[in-house]
Structure formats: C-alpha cells, structure tokens
Computed example of a mutant assay.
Amino acid sequence: MPVFMDVHNVEGGVSASDVAAAHEADLATQGPHGVNYLKYWVDEEAGKIFCLVEAPDAEAANTVHRQAHGLVADEIYPISAQG
C-alpha cells in the first residue's frame, strides 16, 4: 500500500496533548477507509505536525482527518521506504 507523509501548519503553535487526541480520533476513524496512520511527530512551538500514513491514496488519508477532527493536511507527499 502507498505511504504518505502529511504536514499540518497550525498558526500560533499546537500542544502535544491536542495532537495526541487528534491522532486517537484518526485511529478510531481510519478502518472503513482502508487507511493506517502509523506515526506522527509534532513541533509544538512551530505549530507543525507530520503524519506517516498508509493509504490507498492521499485523498483517503485526508478524508480520515476531515471526518475524525476536521484538520486536513496542508501538504501531503508520497514517500517510498528505504531499506
């Protein structure tokens, strides 16, 4: 399955606890969409969130975000795993 890295930019910063709650909402929503959110990283001060996700396509990944909490990615990049 394709793997994507998405990027969220939250003006004014973001708290790690809010991101953790959003990630839990993604996990609860992802199944019917064939999506698997694997891991995320957050830079609280810069307001940056990065999500690593397996998904059939970028839109499926964003659909999960939209339904789970409404915070869709500002950018999403297909990536390939390196051995």
Score class of each variant (00 low, 15 high):
Ser80Trp: 01
His33Leu: 15
Ala81Cys: 00
Glu54Tyr: 03
Lys48Trp: 00
Val72Lys: 13
Ala68His: 03
Thr63Asp: 11
Val72Trp: 05
Asp74Lys: 08
Asp74Leu: 04
Ser80Pro: 01
His69Ile: 00
Gly34Phe: 12
Asn36Trp: 00
Glu54Pro: 01
Pro78Met: 09
Leu52Ser: 08
Val64Thr: 04
His33Ser: 11
Tyr77Trp: 04
Ser80His: 06
Ala61Asn: 01
Cys51Ala: 12
Lys39Cys: 00
Val42Leu: 12
Gly70Gln: 07
Val42Lys: 06
Thr29Pro: 06
Ile79Cys: 08
Ala61Lys: 04
Glu54Phe: 03
Gly70Tyr: 05
Tyr77Ala: 05
Tyr37Trp: 15
Trp41Pro: 06
Ala55Thr: 05
Gln67Pro: 00
Glu75Lys: 11
Ala28Gly: 05
Thr63Phe: 00
Ala46Thr: 07
Ala61Leu: 08
Ala73Tyr: 02
Val35Ala: 06
Asp74Cys: 03
Asp74His: 10
Gly70Thr: 11
Pro32His: 03
Asp26Arg: 14
Lys39Tyr: 04
Asn36Gln: 11
Trp41Asp: 10
Thr63Gly: 02
Tyr37Leu: 14
Tyr40Trp: 15
Asn62Gly: 02
Thr63Ile: 08
Gln30Phe: 04
Glu45Asn: 09
Pro32Tyr: 04
Val72Met: 11
Lys48Met: 14
Asn36Glu: 14
Val42His: 10
Val72Gln: 10
Asp74Asn: 14
Ile76Leu: 07
His33Ala: 12
His33Pro: 11
Glu59Ser: 15
Gly70Lys: 13
Ala55Ser: 12
Val53Ser: 04
His69Phe: 06
His65Trp: 07
Ala61Ile: 04
Ile79Arg: 04
Ala60Ile: 05
Ile76Thr: 05
His33Asp: 11
Glu59His: 13
Asn62Thr: 02
Arg66Cys: 03
Asp74Ala: 07
Gly47Glu: 02
Gln67Trp: 01
Ala55Met: 01
Ala46Pro: 09
Lys39Thr: 00
Pro78Cys: 02
Ala55Phe: 02
Val42Met: 13
Leu52Met: 14
Asn36Asp: 08
Thr63Lys: 15
Gly34Val: 12
Ala61Val: 01
Trp41Tyr: 13
Pro32Val: 12
Gly47Cys: 06
Gln82Ala: 08
Glu59Val: 14
Leu52Tyr: 14
Asp43Phe: 04
Ala81Asp: 00
Val72Asp: 02
Tyr77Asp: 00
Thr63Cys: 01
Glu45His: 09
Asp57Tyr: 07
Ala60Glu: 05
Thr63Ala: 08
Ala81Tyr: 00
Tyr40Asp: 10
Gln82His: 06
Thr29Val: 02
Glu44Trp: 14
Ile76Gln: 03
Val72Thr: 10
Val64Gly: 01
Tyr77Val: 08
Gln30Leu: 07
Lys39Met: 13
Ala58Val: 05
Tyr77Glu: 00
Cys51Met: 14
Val42Cys: 10
Ser80Val: 10
Gly34Cys: 08
Asp26Met: 15
Tyr77Ile: 07
Pro78Lys: 13
Trp41Val: 13
Ala68Ser: 14
Lys48Tyr: 07
Asp43Ile: 01
Thr63Glu: 12
Phe50Asn: 10
Ala81Ser: 09
Lys48Asp: 00
Asp57Val: 09
Gln82Tyr: 09
